[in-house]
Every structure is written in structure tokens, then in C-alpha cells.
């Protein structure tokens, strides 16, 4: 049952690659957005927050369509980036971009909650002890919000690993390039005799998601106990 064909392996490998890259690349902007939303007051803040959370509620096909219009070869951003050799359309990089956009709301939400939970008076105490803003950030704010940062990263990875709608709309279904695991499952289901392969891949995706969630809970517990207790 668990002899995966080369095509199935390809889909699994591609999904892992897309998931890891999209998570890694969305960590810095994700944390920045979470910090800004948690700590700063500015005009149009709810607009920014709405924009970040939008992919969570929008039909994924609309998000994918918007990415196509903006980042496609004839889209304004896609056309511009082409000058630097960066192409998203119908490439695995485009799948990673779509996954990152879809995972960002989950990541930002988890991080924002954990940053809001950090007692700002501890940061003020650090400042009165001679720490500048950056030192207070790296020694107090970041370590105390770490459980949420990890939770956010794992949620983003799990979402990226299994993203379907925006990805297939934006970069289509090209085996070996953009055919990630969920898209491969969909393709197998469309072809006669593909059920066995679809089931194999479905079980695999359940396993990967479970490992990610259990692993992150274990990591979180370890960190929380280090942060809070004796």
C-alpha cells in the first residue's frame, strides 16, 4: 500500500518544499505585522488588519485570481519582478507565494495574541535598567512571545502544505512544478483508477499535519514551562 510512485513522491516533496519556504519567508513580515498590530496605534490600522486577515475569509479562488492579476507575467508586480529574474507564474515559487498569503492570517493572529500577552511594564522595567529598545525587544518581548511565534509558524506551515484553491488558480496544475500534494490528490481523483494513489496521499497528508501539530504543542509546552515556571 505504501509504495509511492515517483509522481506521488514528487508531489509530497514539492508540498514540503513549498510549505517550508513559504513559512520561512513569511516569518519576518508576519512577526513585523503582528507586532505593529499588537502594539502600535495609527490611522487606518483596521484597514491593514483587514487586509492581512482577508485571505482567511475570501474564497481561495478569488485570492488566487488576485495573485494572478498582480503577480502574473503581465501583472504590474509580476512584470516588474521579471526584470530581476523573479518569476512566479506557473512556477513552484508562485505556489509558495500563494501558500504564504493564505497562511499569513493564521500566523499573524497567533503571533499578535502572544505579543499582546507580554506585559509591557516588563519592557519598561528593562528600559529603566539601561536596556535600549532593541535589547528590551530581544531579551524580553521576543522570548516571552516565543510560544505564539512557534504556534504561528506551525499553523502557517500546515496551511501552506495543504493549500489548494489559491495555488491551483494562480499557478495551475503542473506535475513536478506546481502540483503539490492536495492538487495531486485532486488530479488522481479525476482520473480513472486513481483512488488508491489518492488515498495514499490523503493518509500521508493527515500524518504530516498531525506531526506538525503534535510537534509544535510539545515545543510550546517546553518553552512555556521554561518561561513561566521555576
Amino acid at each position: 500500500m505504501f509504495d509511492l510512485s515517483p509522481a506521488e513522491w514528487e508531489a509530497v516533496r514539492l508540498s514540503l518544499k513549498v510549505g517550508l519556504w513559504s513559512t520561512l519567508l513569511s516569518l519576518p513580515p508576519g512577526f513585523f505585522l503582528a507586532y505593529v498590530l499588537a502594539r502600535l496605534q495609527f490611522p487606518f490600522k483596521s484597514l491593514l488588519s483587514g487586509l492581512v486577515y482577508l485571505p482567511l475569509v475570501l474564497p481561495p479562488v478569488v485570492t488566487g485570481f488576485a495573485l494572478l492579476l498582480l503577480f502574473g507575467t503581465r501583472g504590474p508586480i509580476g512584470h516588474f519582478l521579471q526584470n530581476f529574474g523573479i518569476v512566479f507564474a506557473f512556477r513552484w515559487t508562485g505556489a509558495a507565494l500563494a501558500a504564504a498569503v493564505m497562511g499569513l492570517p493564521l500566523m499573524v493572529r497567533a503571533m499578535r495574541l502572544s505579543i499582546e500577552a507580554v506585559d509591557r511594564r516588563l519592557e519598561l522595567a528593562a528600559r529603566t535598567l539601561g536596556a535600549g529598545w532593541w535589547r528590551a525587544f530581544f531579551t524580553i518581548t521576543l522570548p516571552l512571545s516565543l510560544p505564539g511565534v512557534i504556534a504561528g509558524a506551525v499553523l502557517s506551515f500546515a496551511k501552506s502544505f495543504g493549500e489548494f484553491g489559491a495555488t491551483i488558480t494562480f499557478v495551475s496544475n503542473i506535475p513536478g512544478e506546481t502540483q503539490t500534494l492536495p492538487i495531486a490528490i485532486y488530479s488522481f481523483l479525476q482520473s480513472p483508477g486513481g483512488e488508491d494513489a489518492a488515498i495514499r496521499l490523503a493518509i500521508l497528508s493527515v500524518a504530516v499535519s498531525m506531526i506538525a501539530i503534535v510537534g509544535s504543542e510539545w515545543l510550546e509546552r517546553r518553552i512555556v514551562s521554561r518561561v513561566r515556571l521555576a
Binding site: A125, A126, T128, G132, I140, V227, R228
Partner: peptide
């Protein structure tokens, strides 16, 4: 001057110790 430039020690009503580091690291933070 910024708080960190003032060299003024501040003891709060609640101790506000940093929960994630040891007593020693708290004492030596500044």
C-alpha cells in the same frame, strides 16, 4: 533623556521580575 540613559533605579509596587530568566540573571540584567 530616554529611560535607559537616565541611570535612575526604579522599584515598582509589583516586583516586575523577568519571569523567563533566573534570579541571578534578573539581578545582573542592568
Amino acid at each position: 533623556l530616554k529611560p535607559e540613559q537616565r541611570r535612575v533605579g526604579y522599584i515598582f509596587q509589583d516586583a516586575r521580575l523577568f519571569p523567563h530568566i533566573s534570579v541571578r540573571d534578573n539581578l545582573l540584567y542592568g
